[in-house]
């Protein structure tokens, strides 16, 4: 009898052996990470664990000292521009340029990402997150929640295969955070977008992501479902794991 071997789709993101040192600080120390097509992955860890540096290396903004990153089959840094067309990025801490209206800001990035129909993508993106009324607002008139929503619209207009979000719901009210989460879930379900997200909100992460990668002192220390990761550290939930790693880091 012949065994049927089902080929898995190639990962949309592959990173191997990432190392980054800043003067006397070892920020990242040998991180391996793959994200499959449509997979939703959380990258968690205490402050200073190396999450943001890892994300920035994956986005080609920071050059690793060692290791490599490949997005959609495009190896960085040589094919950075092609790789960038496959990725959308938003961060809760990034403001909107104050001299631009929301529609102008989105139009700029639609053009930079090469959206097929920039104006249509803007309308659909604003509608998905129920912020059509903000289209003509200036960037500096928005609340932090509204800014985050606009940032996510910007990151998704070109239908990326991978959406990378750094602390997307940090400092948001629970209702706005829920709207962000729901919008991301809908997007991933409808378009098969893979997700790589960092967050300090463990409940949100468990709802949003099917796979958890914990990073501590620049190294991946756990990779699996939320239940697997909690069990591995002998804790009840992800928050327990987080607190345990944060305490270890302080010692």
């Amino acid at each position: 009898m012949l065994a049927v071997v089902r080929e898995l789709p190639p990962p949309v993101l592959r990173a191997r052996g990432l190392v980054k040192r800043y003067k006397r600080v070892q920020a990242v120390n040998g991180v391996d990470l793959s994200v499959g097509a449509g997979e939703r992955v959380a990258l968690l860890g205490p402050n200073g664990a190396g999450k943001t540096t890892t994300l920035l290396m994956m986005l080609g903004v920071v050059t690793p000292d060692e290791g490599w990153v490949e997005i959609g089959g495009h190896r960085l840094p040589g094919a950075r521009s092609q790789a960038a067309t496959e990725v959308g990025f938003a961060a809760g801490y990034l403001p909107l340029p104050e001299a631009l209206r929301v529609r102008e800001f989105l139009h700029l990035f639609g053009e930079l990402y090469g959206s097929a129909d920039t104006d249509g993508a803007i309308e659909r993106g604003l509608a998905r997150f129920r912020i059509e009324h903000l289209a003509e607002a200036m960037g500096n008139e928005l609340s932090s929640g509204q800014r985050t929503l606009v940032g996510i619209v910007k990151a998704t207009m070109h239908h990326p295969r991978l959406l990378i979000l750094d602390e997307p719901t940090a400092s948001l009210d629970p209702d706005v955070a829920k709207r962000v989460r729901t919008g991301i879930e809908d997007l991933c379900a409808e378009e098969g977008t893979a997700l790589l997200v960092t967050s300090h909100n463990m409940i949100e992460v468990e709802r949003l992501c099917e796979r958890i990668v914990f990073i501590s002192a620049g190294q991946v220390v756990a990779d699996g479902t939320a239940a697997d990761v909690a069990a591995r550290f002998g804790r009840d939930d992800l928050e327990g794991v987080f607190l345990h790693l944060a305490e270890e880091g302080e010692r």
């Binding site: 986005l59 080609g60 903004v61 521009s81 092609q82 960038a84 067309t85 990725v87 990025f89 961060a91 990034l94 403001p95 340029p97 104050e98 001299a99 990035f109 930079l112 990402y113 090469g114 910007k154």
Partner: peptide, 14 residues
């Protein structure tokens, strides 16, 4: 000044 650099650096813009 407008902290837009990171937004630009992650796009396909050369």
């Amino acid at each position: 000044w407008s902290r837009n650099l990171l937004n630009l650096l992650v796009t396909p813009l050369r």
